[in-house]
Design a protein around this nucleic acid. Structure first.
Length: 461
RNA sequence: GGAGACUUCGCCUAGUCUGGUCUAUGGCGCCGCACUGCUAAUGCGGUUGGGGUCUUAAAGCCCCUCCCGGGUUCGAAUCCCGGAGUCUCCGCCA
């Protein structure tokens, strides 16, 4: 693993700045070439520019779109030239065969030159396409209409559930988990280094209770259960929109152990989406609902915040992810359903939380719209994200080439994808400890988990 | 890790030895039409995916696509080289 130390730029690749293993199938002017709809950029550049300006500096948007427009024109003109030359050579080969059959002496005009010319044009095209793809893949998704520009400060709280519990003397989750013997931070560091911990004893049971209870609830809601590989090919990272931007935020295998480029998944969203790469989904089966449990591996920048102690931000945490592939017109309803489903979990646990609609700059670049579910942490007086539910529109589907066939028609279209954590336990676990702590130092176990944890109350041992 | 077989348009499959009417065969599925109280069955037709071009749009036309990349050739699903994957057998290891 080359991810443990400072990010060596050379590790990005084969030395030329490209990333190992991508694109998976060589140069491609086809279905994968666009992340945003090139057609839309050509036809309604203004709309694209306006939407992008919510996330990027307008001058930068203009520059990027100018360059993309130019590359797009070059690309198409090269294709026209190449096609014409190929057509000429194909006709010649057919004439040759016909002449031979007729017994006449076939004629060929400068085969070497023709081949060379096509090869030359093709290498120009490769060059243009790879530049176009680079520029395109740097563009974020177009934010939805109701998503406002700006960063964190522009996020809007749109819903609040419950209220902060009245606790006389608040103890924080690190103190509580230590006192109750739930997490062994020191031995975790001894094993994995800084940023790792071990759930121990009842703590492990509580953690596992959360995961298995989530699984049960998702099954009941009609999601298909997936346990995917944790090590994924780089192409899957591209499809999900994590690469190239977040390439350095995940752990990579070195070139010896993984010549094609593999990384440890930072979220199982990447795996669920990647599982359906290049497929045309059966329209009747949409929306296709799936969920996956995996640990999530993230490098996270070094350094610590007082409100991110304990399990709140580590290099490995457990998360169950729900995901839907839908028809475009099903996306709104799916987003609502997923939000309600994720929030239903937090509510059943009895935790106070709020829902925020993220501003364009604070949401993940692949998403049109993101809503965070944030749970109350009494020790810091802040809300911490336990779930992020997002609608990607067709952005991820384009990158991953996941389509459906228009009913009755022959055309294929890109599906919409939505994903949401349901939930990340590493934030939920501390919230449970803090919100349900009792004056005597014990912690009440949420009712829905009691059977699985084997007790109603966590007490110092 | 070793040896062999294999990878064709959603799925199955013909074609590969012997390069050219392969501009890819047939079946299943799917779509449309016909017939029939309904369904089923039957008949006829359509159905790889992508890019370019033209167009209000559709149709049309052109190019690419027989696992991927390269080579030979006037011409490659077919021949050669490299890679990926699947299966069978052997070895090794939880």
């Amino acid at each position: 693993m080359d991810g443990g130390t400072a990010p060596p730029p050379a590790a990005r690749a084969g030395g030329d700045g490209s990333i190992r293993g991508f694109p998976p199938d060589g140069p491609d002017g086809g279905v994968r070439s666009s992340m945003l709809d090139m057609e839309l950029i050509r036809k309604d550049r203004e709309a694209v520019a306006t939407a992008l300006a919510k996330r990027l500096d307008p001058a930068e948007v203009t520059r990027a779109l100018d360059e993309i427009g130019q590359l797009d024109r070059e690309r198409r003109s090269l294709i026209t030239e190449i096609d014409a030359e190929r057509q000429r050579r194909k006709a010649e080969a057919r004439a040759y065969a016909a002449a031979k059959r007729a017994g006449t002496e076939p004629e060929v005009s400068a085969p070497e030159a023709g081949r060379k010319q096509v090869a030359e044009l093709e290498s120009q095209l490769d060059e243009v396409q790879s530049r176009l793809r680079d520029r395109m893949s740097e563009l974020p998704n177009l934010p939805a209409e109701d998503v406002v520009p700006g960063g964190k400060e522009a996020n809007r709280v749109v819903k609040v559930f419950g209220e902060p519990p009245a606790i006389e003397k608040v103890r924080d989750h690190v103190e509580l988990s230590r006192a109750l013997g739930l997490v062994d931070y020191e031995r975790g560091v001894k094993l994995g280094g800084s940023g790792f911990w071990i759930y121990t004893g009842t703590g492990a049971r509580l953690e596992w209770a959360l995961v298995t209870w989530f699984v049960e609830r998702h099954l009941a809601a009609g999601y298909e259960f997936l346990l995917p590989p944790h090590l994924l090919l780089n192409s899957a990272g591209y499809a999900a929109g994590q690469f190239p931007k977040f390439y350095d935020d995940v752990y990579h295998l070195d070139a010896d152990s993984a010549p094609r480029g593999q990384f440890l998944l930072p979220t199982s969203e990447t795996a669920i989406l990647g599982a359906y790469q290049d497929e045309i989904l059966e329209t009747a089966k949409l929306p296709l609902k799936a969920f996956a449990y995996t640990p999530c591996y993230r490098r996270e920048s070094a350094g610590s915040h007082s409100d991110e102690r304990g399990t709140v931000r580590g290099h490995q945490f457990n998360k169950v992810e729900i995901f839907q592939f839908t028809l475009p017109e099903q996306a709104d309803a799916a987003l609502e359903e997923m939000l309600a489903h994720a929030e239903g979990l937090v509510e059943a646990l009895g935790l106070h939380y709020r829902r925020s609609l993220l501003a364009a700059g604070d949401a993940s670049a692949s998403m049109k719209k993101t809503l965070d579910i944030e749970v109350w942490m009494p020790s810091t007086g802040k809300y911490k994200e336990v779930s992020s539910v997002s609608w990607a529109g067709d952005y991820q589907a384009r990158r991953a080439a996941i389509r459906y066939r228009e009913p009755g028609g022959k055309q294929t279209r890109f599906v919409h994808t939505l994903n949401g954590s349901a939930l990340a336990t590493s934030r939920l676990f501390p919230a449970i400890l803090e919100q349900f702590q009792q004056p005597d130092g014990s912690v009440l176990v949420p009712e829905v988990l009691r059977d699985r944890v084997g007790t109603d109350r966590l007490t110092p041992r």
